[in-house]
Simulated assay, not measured.
Amino acid sequence: MNTDTDGSPQEITSLVGREVYSNNGVFVGEVEDVRLDLDAETVTGLALSELNDELFAGRVSRGQGVMLPYRWVRAVGDVILINDVIERLKDDDPDSDREEAVA
């Protein structure tokens, strides 16, 4: 079960449809589905659709989505805030050992 920012439990299905923004206020996408670890009973990823075209241009074809690791999530409320996605996506260094959103 997932918890809201105040620590209260919430239904996993309530994440679907929420907008996702970077901590800098940039719209990233909308939650279409969640990836779960059933053994640990935790959310491990967010499948996003309705992506920010400017942010994902050249990385994801139109109509495709991305899967973000749930550990990038910093706050869940009316919207979901994530850290570092803008910097991670703009970092085009191929020798970098960073993680990247998966198309």
Rank of each mutant, 00 (worst) to 15 (best):
E99P: 02
S96G: 04
I12M: 08
R59N: 02
I80H: 03
G63F: 02
V43R: 04
A47S: 12
V28N: 03
S8R: 14
L68A: 07
E19G: 12
E11I: 08
N2W: 02
G77P: 00
A75D: 15
L55A: 00
S22K: 01
T5E: 10
R71P: 01
E50M: 11
R71G: 04
G58Q: 08
S8W: 11
E11P: 10
F27R: 11
G17C: 08
E54K: 13
G45M: 08
T3C: 13
L38M: 08
A101K: 03
A47Q: 12
V43Y: 05
N24D: 14
V85A: 07
I86E: 15
P9H: 05
L51M: 01
I82G: 04
G7A: 05
S49W: 01
G77R: 06
D4V: 09
Y70R: 05
L46A: 12
A75Q: 14
S8V: 05
D37R: 10
T3N: 14
E30M: 13
E50L: 10
S61Q: 10
S49H: 09
A101D: 03
P9G: 04
D95G: 00
A101F: 03
D95C: 00
S61I: 00
E11W: 11
L38N: 14
M1P: 09
N24A: 13
E11Y: 13
P9K: 06
R71H: 14
N2Y: 10
D4I: 11
Q10I: 14
D95V: 00
D6K: 14
L48K: 05
R88N: 04
S22F: 03
E41A: 15
E100C: 10
N24H: 12
G65N: 03
G77C: 01
A103K: 05
V73T: 12
E30H: 01
R88D: 06
E41L: 14
D84K: 05
G29W: 01
V66F: 06
R59I: 07
T13H: 12
E99T: 12
L48F: 04
G77A: 12
R35N: 09
F56M: 04
L55Y: 01
R59M: 14
V102Q: 11
Y21E: 08
V76Y: 06
E32Y: 13
N83T: 11
L55M: 06
G29V: 02
M67D: 08
M67I: 15
V76F: 08
D39R: 10
D78E: 15
V85F: 04
G29I: 01
E87Y: 06
D37C: 10
E50Y: 07
V43G: 10
S8N: 15
L55K: 05
V102I: 12
L81I: 14
D91R: 02
R35F: 07
T42E: 15
I82T: 12
V26W: 00
L68P: 06
E99A: 10
E100Q: 14
E54M: 10
V79C: 02
E50T: 13
L36K: 12
N52W: 06
V31N: 02
T42V: 15
V66R: 02
M1S: 14
T44A: 04
L89C: 02
L15Q: 06
G77V: 01
P69S: 14
D39L: 14
Y70T: 05
D84Y: 07
E19W: 02
D97L: 12
W72M: 11
V79Y: 08
S8C: 07
L89E: 15
E30R: 11
A75C: 08
V60Y: 01
F56W: 10
L48C: 10
T5G: 00
D84H: 09
